[in-house]
């Protein structure tokens, strides 16, 4: 079954199957890919895009690192995965 993905509320939320799953204002630990910090603490200010790789839902968040202040749009990062029981959010370090 197809998974419905979209950005809502001026890109403040990622919606998965018509549920607001992930919102801005979260602080994500991100390994290596965002700035020069080995572990970035990324404040998500907006989402630029959302997509899926198989059952894995990914998004490109825009924000900045709380450690170094670097601002920009991150590469595709996992948001969660669609399971037979619904949608499961990713926890912990994102890479």
């Amino acid at each position: 079954m197809a998974t419905r993905l979209r950005l809502l509320d001026d890109a403040a939320w990622v919606s998965v199957n018509d549920e607001r799953a992930v919102g801005t204002s979260e602080v994500w630990p991100v390994a290596e890919s965002f700035c020069s910090c080995s572990l970035a603490w990324l404040v998500v200010e907006a989402f630029v895009d959302v997509g899926a790789d198989g059952r894995r839902v990914e998004a490109r968040p825009h924000g900045h690192c709380l450690n170094c202040g670097e601002s920009g749009t991150a590469p595709w990062l996992p948001v969660g995965k669609v399971t037979d029981d619904g949608f499961e959010l990713v926890e912990g370090v994102r890479r």
Binding site: D10, A12, S25, E26, V27, W41, V43, E45, A46, L66
Partner: peptide, 21 residues
């Protein structure tokens, strides 16, 4: 947030929502 409904950019002191640790 950056939608700026409180018109922060035209204030003496502008405050805009953010997060930190």
């Amino acid at each position: 947030c950056t939608a700026s409904c409180a018109q922060p950019q035209i204030a003496d002191i502008s405050l805009r929502g953010m997060k930190t640790r």
